[in-house]
Simulated scan of single mutants.
Amino acid sequence: MTSPAAPHHDAVLLAGGRATRMGGIDKTALVADGVALSDHAVAAAAGARRTVLVGLRAGRGAPAGVVHTREDPPLGGPVAAIAAGLAAVADPAPWTLVLACDLVRPEPAAALLLDAAGTAPDDTDGVVAVDEDGRRQHLLALYRSDALRAAVRALGDPTGAAVRRLTDGLRLVEVPLPAALCADVDEPEDATRATADARLLD
């Protein structure tokens, strides 16, 4: 749960991607702690004013109260998905939480980002998780909505763009997080580490 002082925010959850290193499976349907990874992301966004789930695969529905949209073209990459998620919110909150749906434990990670944003300087464009190797996790971050939307507009065509290119001009406060809170599923062994019985939803 987020703190009462957590900033007002929307959430854009990225569920697309080809998952080529996982044989093309729907990674977001993998189960950790009895819950699909996409549902962990939705739970992490529980305090959001509006939540948009981008790119959920055919045959899976968004939970009640969550808007589902797709990037155009489909599988256009994470920046295209962020752009689609932002476009689905007509009246944005001051902040936008951006989460990849293959994160294993996004709930506590998002809570820490929201706490950090609550004390961020006024000229900060966002707060971004940093893993134990010092790498920024741009899909585990909270951005000022105006700054993120301006960056998307300045970029032009988002299809296939790198997230680092989108965020290069943003002033971001780094929030160091332990490896367990930055863990995602990119390889089969990641799924094994995430949960001893990682499996696809029936």
Rank of each mutant, 00 (worst) to 15 (best):
G16I: 00
G76I: 09
A196R: 13
L114T: 05
E187N: 01
G134Y: 12
A111I: 10
A15W: 03
A162S: 15
P94V: 14
Y143W: 09
H40P: 00
R21T: 14
D115L: 04
A5V: 14
V152L: 14
G24D: 07
G24K: 05
R50S: 10
A150P: 13
R135L: 11
A194T: 00
E107G: 14
A110R: 00
A180W: 01
V152S: 04
G59P: 05
L53H: 03
R165V: 12
G156A: 12
A41F: 08
L148Q: 11
L142C: 01
A196K: 10
R165Y: 04
G126P: 06
L13M: 09
H138W: 00
P78S: 11
L170T: 13
V104G: 09
V52L: 04
G76C: 08
A93L: 11
R171E: 11
L177V: 04
A151F: 00
P7Q: 08
L166A: 07
A116Y: 02
R18D: 11
T124M: 13
P108T: 05
V175Y: 04
G61Y: 05
E187Y: 11
R193D: 09
G34N: 07
V54R: 08
A109P: 02
D102S: 15
E174Y: 11
G134C: 13
G76F: 01
P106W: 05
L113T: 03
G24T: 05
